[in-house]
Design a protein around this nucleic acid. Structure first.
Lengths: 172, 172
DNA sequence: GCCGGCTGGTTCGAATTCGAACAATCCTAT
DNA sequence: ATAGGATTGTTCGAATTCGAACCAGCCGGC
């Protein structure tokens, strides 16, 4: 078997390891943060992310769909989490007159406070685990990479071609 | 509130955006691959990863725990998935004489074949979405980053200190 | 005005994950 | 040899996620 054949069917070993380790590291990061957040502040990482998006928004409010896009989950999962956060009093649903089906999720004062308390814990974790490893140049580089990956995903979402055979985009 | 104070409590905006986008991109990648894999080959990304680890191993076999470490999930999740894969006939549990509690999960021929069929689909996806974005230098750089992140996580796992000012259990 | 199509959210059931508790086995030091 | 402690894998219940089906309200053309 030629090396070329091998590499076209599979991945070159070094590249393969990058991908594998990428998956491992992202999973470990998620777990680590999630665990810490739950133990010390009684909220999920997803919930934390929701609170962060809200506090960063104008009026500290967002629509459900935008929230779903922002944290990259199914809408139904957002509904579920907003119910939870709502029960906890960290968040509030309000109708907005403009669009009668749309719902605005507002961060409550209690929510802001809870976030304020949890943030330092998580941010220090993010710094220690993730950010301290990269200097300015690398950050810029990584940012560019993320942009490209994101664009690639957009492209693929727009253009849901199946794999088989049509490796060769003759027309499109 | 001074800018310095702001940045120590929160993150500098640019750095913050890197982290946020990192989370988004990783989630989107996962979803994308998972979806494609399920639609076209009837297996989960987790299951695919398991098969890959097996085929890459000596004897095409691994112990449950090692599998769990390798794909970064709870042991119970591995048990669950191995049951599934076993029902599908892609994998086989065998005792190994050495250690009577240990179990060796073997990739069956059917499993190897199934993997062989699914791999090109996923690998082309990984290439298009992930790898094409990076040149050799960047790959090396990313690899180094992953190494550092991984080390940081190891460090934190070994040394489970809470963030400075974590609550003491006395109050609980 | 009003009908088809779109969008925003919810509900539902299925799948998967996690962690804690457990059982069996191994290992080490006495 | 043997008790105590670690390791291996499973079982269980709870939490979370997903996608599909669904309902309502919006928007375009007729």
């Amino acid at each position: 078997m030629s090396a070329g054949d091998f590499e076209s069917r599979w991945l070159a070993p070094d590249v393969n390891s990058v991908w594998t380790r990428f998956l491992q590291v992202t999973h470990r990061l998620e777990h680590h943060i999630d665990r810490r957040l739950q133990e010390q502040h009684g909220i999920t990482h997803t919930q934390y992310e929701i609170l962060v998006r809200l506090v960063d928004s104008d009026e500290r409010a967002m629509r459900m769909s935008d929230l779903a896009d922002s944290i990259v989950t199914a809408k139904s999962a957002v509904t579920y989490q907003i119910n939870k956060l709502s029960e906890m009093g960290l968040v509030e649903r309000r109708k907005c007159g403009r669009d009668n089906r749309g719902i605005w999720v507002h961060l409550t004062d209690a929510g802001a406070e809870r976030l304020e308390r949890a943030a330092p814990c998580i941010l220090s974790l993010v710094r220690e685990l993730f950010l301290d490893a990269i200097n300015c140049d690398q950050a810029a580089e990584l940012d560019k990479l993320l942009g490209t990956w994101s664009d690639n995903l957009d492209e693929h979402d727009r253009n849901p071609i199946g794999y088989p055979g049509d490796k060769d985009p003759a027309g499109a």
